[in-house]
């Protein structure tokens, strides 16, 4: 039973108040885009065993979407941040670096 902090309303939410929205920071590809890009946008996911940036909606609360950085193995939550950004905040990345050294290499491997 996960618990995530909703950065919008400030509440620590139970998983049952939330709905999961999958991988975060996808670039939407619309009409005219390459097949490859469109396929990636809709289907290809990092699905990492480790640090995952993902989308959540506080559906049984304020109704707002937000982002979370969470470990898919340990379920540790590094932080949550607003939905209206295209990349995780630098400060959060630095925090993850501190507790999961080398996670970025793993991601690029």
């Amino acid at each position: 039973m996960l618990r995530l902090h909703c950065p919008n309303c400030g509440v620590d939410c139970d998983e049952t108040e939330l709905s999961a929205g999958g991988e975060a920071h996808l670039t939407r590809f619309g009409p005219g885009s390459e097949d490859d890009d469109f396929e990636s946008y809709l289907f290809m996911r990092k699905n990492p065993k480790g640090v995952h940036f993902e989308r959540w909606r506080h559906v049984m609360g304020c109704g707002k979407w937000f982002h979370a950085a969470r470990n898919t193995v340990s379920l540790r939550v590094y932080g949550t941040y607003p939905a209206q950004v295209t990349a995780p905040p630098e400060a959060l990345l630095a925090e993850i670096d501190a507790v999961e050294p080398g996670w970025r290499n793993k991601e690029e491997a």
């Binding site: 039973m1 998983e15 049952t16 999958g22 065993k49 898919t72 193995v73 379920l75």
Partner: peptide, 13 residues
């Protein structure tokens, strides 16, 4: 579960 995970357990709900 509705979220990605490699933990071989799930939420009680």
């Amino acid at each position: 579960d509705s979220f990605n995970g490699y933990h071989q357990r799930g939420s009680f709900h």
